[in-house]
Amino acid sequence: MKGIIGIIIVLILGVLIFSSLRLEYGNSVGITAEMYIEKGVSETGAVNLVTSILADYRVYDTLGETIILFIAILGVSMVLKGDKK
């Protein structure tokens, strides 16, 4: 029963998304990306743009990411070992 409902709902959702999104695949990149490609090497000195973004332009995101990792580790230890005082 749930399976049938699930299929129906998901199909409706799929039709919705595909009908309303006109996403073009493989076209030109956006404004931000052009700026990265233009300035990336000169500003950060890293040839690999992913690195330059990860470790320089958006390092704040990366900081958040590591914190989440830290929280998860803490959480796992808390759940498994219990919350000792």
Binding site: K2, I5, G6, I9, V10, I12, L13, L16
Partner: peptide, 16 residues
């Protein structure tokens, strides 16, 4: 939990 997720998607669809 299944119903909850169903509700969420239904909310989305109905509002659309």
């Amino acid at each position: 939990l299944n119903i909850y997720i169903l509700c969420i998607l239904l909310f989305f669809i109905i509002l659309y």
